[in-house]
Amino acid sequence: MRTEGATVAFLDIEKVVFTYPGRAPVVDGVDWRMQAGEFHCLLGRSGCGKTTLLKLAAGLLKPQSGRIVLRGGELAAPGPQVGFMFQAPTLLDWLSALDNVLLPVSLQRRPTPQDAQRALRLLDQLGLASHAQHHPRQLSGGQQSRVALARALVLEPPLLLLDEPFAALDAITRAELQDDLLRTCRERGTTVLFVTHDINEAVYLGDRIALMHGGRIVENWTITLPAPRMQAMRHGPAFNDYCARVRAAMDGAGT
């Protein structure tokens, strides 16, 4: 229901609690709102509940209480309206890169030539045009991550959820993929929720950062670095100031 004066959030996480039976809550009453087209980072140490919150937002898990509203409708089950990228590329190694990208389509219907063209365009944008027919085994780690990103985007989902997708990559490849991700999502107007434990990555990518600790969001920042981000910003004082503030808050939350 739309109330006078208040805008309806694109993704609205309301007082969400999730517990595995017989244990302390993993997600303990989280409220978070995202407007369409925003890029938010969910930052926290291992075990703080950030991945669980992401799975709740994806509909892979059901909250015990609270609710998750996506574009005005309560999220019932996972589906093509949400793109998801896991920590590992999780490609199917018996399929070519192109068929891997087309997997979300082919599980819904038979892919049309237009679908194949869209998939090829995505691969092209991510610098993999010449690898479309290669199998995952023939690709490097960074290339596999790019294929996984293309797969998450092929149905043009309005919401993209990423769970530390670049954690296993070397620093330079990771920086390239961060730029690719920002550019691709900006072109499509995709709303992105990105989980990471890397402060640097969170400040570089996010318009906003939520810091999670013990299943709650304990702190949040709006990052006002100029868009589009450039790698050179990483060395600027503004960037490092944000990193230091976030770091201090993380250290404070840990004690």
Binding site: F84, F86, T90
Partner: peptide, 9 residues
């Protein structure tokens, strides 16, 4: 991969 397939409906 099972979770991926669930995610893709």
């Amino acid at each position: 991969r099972l979770q991926l397939f669930r995610m893709l409906g």
